[in-house]
């Protein structure tokens, strides 16, 4: 009987040793220590941007025809940098959506042109700085709005140009959109990030 119990103790010790051997390789990674995490909020920097006006009614009343170009003055809009942080600025376009009763109706939209050409349900947008020689095509990929860093209080005037899509259908020689008296919402996104 005493021999049996001694055997049990031996088995227990062996199991403990086996257990240590199995789990030891996984312990060093888990036991590594870490330092203090440092979070630095850069000074009291505040980033701010404003654009005015933020809307445009092409054709005077905001009513457009198929396959037609509309443009603003090159000084129509003013972007102003606020806050206390110099910024890099960017600009991008977006697809135009149909708005019904205050909501986007996904059954009809205009895709933003990638090459400046219009087509069926494809429209194009450009922008120009007031001191630039010509227009720059807008796509959904942000591009530089201003090649230089803008500081707090700086402002830039700019204008936009719109080319509407080809008509959805033609009747008696006249082109029409499939949706009439509807609101189409086009968007231009101006963005900024703290400069280096």
């Amino acid at each position: 009987m005493a021999l049996h119990k001694r055997n049990l103790n031996v088995v227990t010790v062996l199991l403990l040793l086996l257990h240590v051997l199995i789990f030891t390789p996984s312990l060093p990674v888990s036991a590594q220590t870490t330092g203090v995490i440092t979070i630095t909020m850069t000074g009291g920097y505040e980033i701010s941007l404003a654009v005015s006006p933020d809307h445009w009614e092409p054709g005077g009343a905001g009513i457009v025809h198929p396959d037609t170009t509309y443009e603003t003055d090159a000084q129509q809009f003013t972007l102003t940098v606020g806050g206390n942080c110099p910024v890099h600025t960017y600009i991008a376009g977006a697809n135009a959506t149909l708005i019904r009763e205050g909501r986007i109706d996904p059954s009809y939209k205009w895709s933003l042109s990638q090459d400046g050409g219009n087509g069926l349900l494809t429209y194009a947008l450009w922008f120009t700085l007031s001191d630039a020689a010509g227009y720059t095509l807008l796509t959904e990929t942000p591009i530089e709005f201003c090649s230089t860093t803008l500081g707090p209080g700086d402002s830039k005037q700019f204008g936009v140009k719109l080319l509407t899509p080809q008509p959805d259908f033609i009747r008696d020689g006249t082109g029409y959109f499939a949706v009439g008296n509807a609101n189409i919402q086009a968007r231009i996104i101006l963005s900024a990030v703290a400069a280096a």
Binding site: I63, V64, F177
Partner: peptide
């Protein structure tokens, strides 16, 4: 209708 309201 040939016209489309573009801006709100």
């Amino acid at each position: 209708t040939a016209l489309l309201l573009f801006a709100v």
